[in-house]
Nucleic acid binder design. Structure first.
Lengths: 257, 257
DNA sequence: CGCGTCATTGAAGCATCTCAAATGCGGTGG
DNA sequence: CCACCGCATTTGAGATGCTTCAATGACGCG
């Protein structure tokens, strides 16, 4: 499984690696694998030791946590994203399971090599710290989202974010199964259905995976999007969702309040 | 406001600074203040730029997030803890407000100086990355706690953690006002009261701030503590709570599953 | 002593979950 | 091409948990 140059370029385009020297970059990827996994493959199990940093190049990966036979989705990743960086930096075990939602191509980078590179190059180490800080802030947003908002409000804000991420047109597609979306938003599939139905009163119509927001202003009055919870503020510019953790890159210094 | 040597020692004992050279340490604290604040002082407001790393030496600080006129407590810090490290590393604005719960003594370290030190010393930078990774994992635990457990389960697990933190005796004291605890656990004060009352059936009695766990086994069967959510596993050894974010130091490699 | 805050208790309303059944859709095999 | 199957989604009804509003009791401080 040789790594294609075009894949290498995509990895190097990640903020995490963009500033690393070619030498450092080559060293790190020395002990790496590029692998394809079918949909539904479990990549990591909660509680197991983590030996590799995973980088998703194609497909989609779900991160989930479980307790007492219940499961909840903590994030859904799309390319290009690195995940479980925190466990790798601490050489610890994962707090969440990871499995593919679609057939996925994944680059696995040796955790050992990554930590060595960090110790060797302060600049790269700083970039990792920035990435981790960004991840941290992503989960803080998710926690605020969960504790401060109700189900319909979470859904409304998700739709507004997703719309921005899809280019801003009044109709766009949901990127995952509704069942996954429900778990991500912290509700049951039944409840998500009902929440979608209720949003009809706010000018939202749903047809399969396609959503149309007919009256954005009305929906926003319900959603009250917030720059400190949803990554894209009320004016909706920046992509990425509050819930899609880890995938977010260091924020611009002084983001809009 | 000169910094007393004894305070310096306490700061240097933080995992974050323990490995830094004396020179680096002195450089960083050059642009720092040591200040006392009365109870109820707002140190930081959500959304404002963050110019300093805060280190709590005495007292207690609450971190909270707000949305739509509702507020929720994200963490309660006790000495010695550094906070808002993530915002400092990204030179960004805070996602949460901070205010003192008691009269507190706080060391403020220049964010500029901290970032410079990181770029200069890969070893220190690595430690910061480890700290951030630990913080990240703390919030992930909190998010799982919030999404997967109900109110009584969260309280039961909190009590078990708190008991361990207080030395393991069957009677111990709650460290904060119940109103704050309720917000930390993601419920209303009324509901916390009822939850405490319900725990009577599980051998828990409450008298003011004092809690007694008469039948630990019964409570544990309800709580089902989990090493991947609560920092202390079922056997209860390590201190610190799932909800008290940021204050947690890098975990030992390979914590008990 | 009186005031204000915190904690507790009760009752009503709302949101969410669970269980159950019906609907709709895509894909397989005949 | 069509019938059938499996799965995701939807819908309904009842139970549960949580919130809100309101009132009372307990405590500490001026």
């Amino acid at each position: 499984m040789p790594i294609r140059p075009s894949d290498l370029d995509r990895v190097k385009a990640l903020p995490l690696f963009a500033q690393a020297s070619d030498e450092l970059f080559r060293d790190m990827l020395g002990g790496g694998f590029l692998q394809k996994f079918p949909a539904g493959t479990t990549l990591l199990t909660e509680g197991d030791p983590v030996d590799f940093l995973y980088i998703l190049l194609e497909g989609a990966v779900e991160l989930e946590g479980t307790w007492n036979d219940k499961a909840t989705t903590l994030a859904v990743l799309k390319p290009v994203s690195a995940f479980i960086l925190a466990a790798v930096v601490l050489d610890s075990n994962g707090l969440m399971s990871a499995h593919t939602l679609e057939s996925s191509q994944i680059l696995m980078v040796s955790g050992e090599a990554l930590r060595r590179a960090m110790m060797r190059d302060a600049r790269f180490c700083f970039t990792v710290a920035q990435e981790l800080a960004g991840c941290y802030r992503g989960v803080v947003r998710a926690l605020k989202n969960q504790k401060l908002r109700g189900g319909m409000e979470r859904l409304a804000n998700y739709l507004i974010s997703q719309q921005a991420r899809c280019g801003g047109g009044e109709t766009f597609a949901l990127p995952h199964e509704k069942r996954v979306l429900a778990s991500l938003l912290g509700m049951t599939p039944e409840n998500l259905s009902r929440a979608f139905a209720s949003l009809g009163d706010y000018g939202v119509s749903v047809s399969g995976p396609n959503v149309t927001i007919h009256r954005p202003v009305v929906l926003q009055r319900l959603a009250k999007p917030d720059a400190l919870i949803d990554q894209a503020g009320p004016t909706g510019d920046t992509p990425a969702s509050a819930a899609e953790l880890e995938r977010w890159t260091p924020e611009p210094a002084r983001a809009v309040s």
